[in-house]
Structure formats: structure tokens, C-alpha cells
Design a protein around this nucleic acid. Structure first.
Length: 506
RNA sequence: GGGCCGCUAGCUCAAUUGGCAGAGCAGCAGACUCUUAAUCUGCGGGUUGCUGGUUCGAUUCCAGCGCGGCUCACCA
């Protein structure tokens, strides 16, 4: 501790004094373990419905432990509230029911300390399930004052930086991460039940492929090679499909070196899955089933509240072709007739974008501009689950073309709540065509697009061994959890979102 | 990166025109045998994010910096 901290605040000094007095009593301030008969949560589950007379007759014994979240003293009658992080239970402390040592421990407790209690369960006059303590053990000290119990911790910066404080005092925060865990379990269970194999593919890659994004760069010392943190697992998962794993998925982090917002964290969790002998419309049906089932498993219903909106995740979802969506929205905005053919020609679509006031970078082709028009005009309005399908080839270097339409690929994105939740396509499995697509991307990269895809010769070689007809999809887990937990920011569903480091941490 | 907003006690928040920096909760001492935001009495607690400037005097006005939030840009 530096000089500023040499003068302890009263709050810290008092807690340290209590700690010293415990040690002076001969209490081990850091015992090794404490055997519980129940967690607090188990007690509440098991006896939450039991009445006072029932408990009086059964005299159930309980030995449990937790963090002290409230101390209410009345001279000879005292109450603690202890929490196991999930549930709370009250403890009744009477001087005449405890040894002198244990009561002395009680007198030295601070808000936030950990204790173990042993006693019988009963209900108080106010019908609160309570442990009548016959022994009290000190388990660990809380030296720093916790946030106040009534208002809790609302400062978002502290909630993100010191998530443990958020979890201690805000039950809703704990709830968010329990739902997140159930979403992950639900997705695994859904996919495992359909014959998918869960795998793990490299997160450090010599070529960052599978998506259009800027990567993080790192370095391996022994091999003396640059490595990228992956922006997507896609190309590796499809190599596994070449290898005969017909249904495969991975749930893990992707890393993209881009801005931070309420919908973007530099590392985020993605489910990516592939199934052979399928094309993209089959994945629409699968997605509807999966999101509805996972929602029901995670929160008990597929009807959600997100901000102002009530949203149903029950199938079927709306379907809108991208060009038609862009065309109709542009026509509506401009109060003019717009033909889909206008969107396919660079000069005409550029004129439409300019009239709409949408910025277009030099070098963008008709497909990129059309996609931009669609996203600008429609994305925030796509509240009900909506599949936007049939994307321009130009923005989809890994998707299979639509028969008879070289400008269009079999791809969809799913929007819910005004943002993109999933992205899927029929996989391009023609190695010659894949090479041409990569070369087109290289040209864009040469023209200054840092997010254009790199050439990946090894991936093309894999395709040359034969990738069966395959459809694949990525689902943004963080965003889906935002929807299920009514969280306005992605930081609310990531335990430790990336924050600029502070150097003045106290 | 741009724009707007915020930063005051451990937490949640006040502070009039620039005039001694406050409250609730938490804490400490005391009272109280069933409370649960316990109550009652009393008492402590501050480098007002940081650095400068203007001023007799700055939480307040100005400038710069730091961190955050929202938003736009970029993306998923």
C-alpha cells in the first residue's frame, strides 16, 4: 500500500480491529474447510414450504455457511442474514444458545464476513425460515466495506470492473449469469440430441479467416511466427466436415479488433454449427426450434420482454429477402419507384444511397451498397424475429451462390430486438469458385479494405478433397442472452467486459 | 475517433447567484428477548476524479487530462 493508504479510514481500521480481536480470542481466522449438511439454497428449497408447526415437530438440523449480508441486534436476540450467493437464510443468535467463544465471534462480525452455523430450523413470529444457531464458526474476513444493502450497487463502472461486488449485492446480476449458463447448456443439449459433435478448434490461427473483420495479432516465441486470435472458427469446422464429421459445433470466443458498444465486446461468444446434406432454409427451421426451446429451458418461456417490446420467439419467424427489404424501404423513404434491378447496378444503387443520405465508400460495389441500405433502413426496426435472406455475393465470400443468379448467395441473417443474432448460409464447396472469391477479397484488401478476407490455400486444399453439401450457422450467444435477460448492454451479460485499465484502483 | 452527459463520505444521492460540503443507509458507543430497509439516543466519517487558471473565496466558472455512460461512425 502506498502513502495515500497509510492513514486507514475508520471503516477499514474497525474491521481490522475486529479481525485482530478474533485472532486474540484464539480463533483461526482462515480455517481450511467447513462441512455443510446443506447449502443455503438447498435449505430454502427443502424447507421454504414447511410451516412453523411442521418444523417444530421435526426439529430439522442444518449446518451451512455463507456471507453475512445483514446483522440485526436486539440485545439478547440477534439475527444474521447469510447468503450462499444464490439464496439467503436468517440465523437466530441467542447468547444463551451459544458458547461464550461463539457469541464473542458473533460480536466481532462485520457485514460481509463468512460464517458457518449449526442449529435447528424454525420459523420466527414473522414466519421467516430461520436457523436457531447452536454454534457459530468464523470462516473468512471481509476487510472492505460492501455497497449498501438497499440501493445496492448501481454505478455501472464499478459493477463491470468489480463484478464480485455486483454479484454479492445485486441478485438480478446473478440471475443474468445463471440464465446465460442455462442458455449454453440448453444449446449443447439441443445439438447433442440431434447428433452434433462438440469440438474445439484453434483460437490462435496463422490466418484469421471465416469472417470479415480485423483481428488481434500475437506472436509465438518458439516458432517465431505471428498468430492471430481467431475472428471465427468457420474454416476449421468445415475442414472437420470434410473429414467426415457430418454434424459439428463449437461454442467459444471470437476476437475482433473493433469498436466497443452496447452490442459489441472485443471478445464475444459464438455458437457455430454445420450440418451436411442441407441447405440454408433447413437452418431457418432449425433455428426457430432451437431458440424457442433454449429460451423455454433458460427462462421458462419463449415469450420475452425486451425494453419496450414484447417479443415471441415461437416459430415461425418472418422472412424478408434482403434486396426486397432494401428496395421497399428505399422506395418508401424516397417516395419513388425503386426496382430491384436498380439495386443490382452500381451506378443506380449508388444514386439511391446518395439520395438516402447513406455514406458509401469508394470502391463499394452494388452488393455492398445494397446491404448497407438494408441495414441502415431496416435493422433497428426488426424487432420481431426476422430472417433476412439472399445476400449479395460481394459481401459473402464463403456462401454458396443461388442457382442462376451469380450476384446472390444462399445466406440469411436473423434479427431480433433490432440487432443481428445469427448468420447462416449454404456453404460454398466448389474449390475453384472459392479461390475466385478469395481473389476478389484480395483485390478489395489491396484497395484498402482491412476487413476483406485473406487467401487460405490450406482451406482450398481441404475443399479439393470434397466438402459435401453443407449448411452452417453462427449464433451470437451474448446477444441472445441480452434478449432473454432484457439487458440493454452486452456488458451486462459478460462477466468481465473489456474496460480501459485504471491505475488509481483503491 | 466525433458529439452529449456524468465523476461529491464505504454505497445511494443533495448542495440556491461563486460564500463554513450535507442527508439516508453503512460504521462506532449505548438501549431493546422475534427483527428483516428493525427502531430510539448520541458520535465520528471528505484531497468534491486529477492538474492548472480566474477570484478575497471554486463542488460551482474556464482550460487541459483521466475514467465511465449514452449516441454516431465501424462491426456481429
Amino acid at each position: 500500500m502506498s502513502d495515500e493508504h497509510a492513514r486507514e479510514s475508520d471503516l477499514l481500521r474497525q474491521r481490522r480491529d475486529n479481525f485482530r480481536q478474533l485472532v486474540a480470542l484464539g480463533v483461526d481466522p482462515y480455517p481450511r474447510q467447513y462441512e455443510r449438511t446443506h447449502t443455503v439454497d438447498e435449505l430454502v428449497s427443502a424447507y421454504g414450504g414447511a410451516g412453523g408447526e411442521e418444523l417444530e415437530a421435526a426439529q430439522p438440523l442444518a449446518r451451512t455457511a455463507g456471507r453475512v449480508l445483514a446483522i440485526r441486534s436486539f440485545g439478547k436476540a440477534n439475527f444474521l442474514a447469510i447468503s450462499d450467493g444464490r439464496s439467503k437464510i436468517q440465523v437466530y443468535i441467542r447468547k444463551d444458545a451459544l458458547s461464550e467463544r461463539d457469541f464473542a465471534i458473533f460480536r466481532l462480525l462485520d457485514f460481509g464476513d463468512f460464517v458457518g452455523v449449526d442449529g435447528r430450523l424454525f420459523r420466527t413470529k414473522t414466519n421467516e425460515l430461520t436457523i436457531w444457531a447452536s454454534s457459530l464458526e468464523f470462516l473468512a474476513k471481509c476487510f472492505l466495506p460492501l455497497p449498501e444493502k438497499w440501493h445496492g450497487l448501481t454505478d455501472v463502472e464499478t459493477r463491470y470492473r468489480q463484478r464480485y461486488l455486483d454479484l454479492i449485492v445485486n441478485p438480478d446480476s446473478r440471475r443474468v449469469f445463471e440464465i446465460r449458463s442455462r442458455v449454453l447448456a440448453g444449446m449443447r443439449s439441443f445439438l447433442n440430441g440431434r447428433g452434433y459433435l462438440e469440438v474445439e478448434t484453434p483460437m490462435m490461427q496463422p490466418i484469421a479467416g471465416g469472417a470479415l473483420a480485423r483481428p488481434f495479432l500475437t506472436h509465438h516465441n518458439a516458432l517465431d511466427i505471428p498468430l492471430f486470435l481467431r475472428i471465427a472458427p468457420e474454416l476449421y469446422l468445415k475442414r472437420l466436415t470434410v473429414g467426415g464429421i457430418e454434424r459439428v459445433y463449437e461454442i467459444n470466443r471470437n476476437f475482433r479488433n473493433e469498436g466497443i458498444s452496447t452490442q459489441h465486446n472485443p471478445e464475444f461468444t459464438m455458437l457455430e454449427f454445420y450440418q451436411t446434406y442441407s441447405e440454408y432454409t433447413e437452418l431457418m427451421t432449425l433455428t426457430e426450434e432451437m431458440l424457442s426451446a433454449v429460451a423455454t429451458e433458460a427462462i421458462g418461456t419463449d415469450q420475452i420482454t425486451f425494453g419496450e417490446h414484447q417479443i415471441s420467439l415461437a416459430p415461425p419467424y418472418r422472412r424478408v429477402a434482403l434486396r426486397e427489404g432494401a428496395r421497399s424501404a428505399a422506395a418508401e423513404r424516397l417516395r419513388a419507384v425503386v426496382d430491384e434491378a436498380d439495386l443490382r447496378r452500381q451506378e443506380s444503387v449508388l444514386g439511391i444511397a446518395q439520395r438516402l443520405g447513406i455514406d458509401v465508400r469508394p470502391g463499394w460495389g452494388a452488393g455492398k451498397i445494397t446491404t448497407e441500405i438494408f441495414e441502415r433502413l431496416n435493422e433497428h426496426r426488426l424487432i420481431e424475429p426476422t430472417f433476412v435472406y439472399d445476400f449479395p455475393t460481394e459481401v459473402s465470400p464463403l456462401s454458396k451462390g443461388k442457382p442462376g443468379d451469380p450476384d446472390t448467395v444462399e445466406r440469411f441473417e436473423l434479427y431480433i430486438g433490432g440487432f443481428e443474432v445469427a448468420n447462416a448460409f449454404s456453404e460454398l464447396n466448389d474449390p475453384a469458385e472459392q479461390r475466385r472469391r478469395f481473389e476478389a477479397q484480395l483485390a478489395e484488401r489491396a484497395a484498402g479494405d482491412q476487413e476483406a478476407h485473406e487467401m487460405d490455400e490450406d482451406y482450398i486444399r481441404a475443399l479439393e478433397y470434397g466438402l459435401p453439401p453443407t449448411a452452417g450457422e453462427g449464433v451470437g450467444i451474448d446477444r441472445f442472452v441480452m434478449l432473454l435477460t432484457n439487458s440493454p448492454s452486452i456488458r451486462d451479460v459478460i462477466l468481465f467486459p473489456l474496460m480501459r485499465p485504471r491505475h488509481d484502483v483503491v
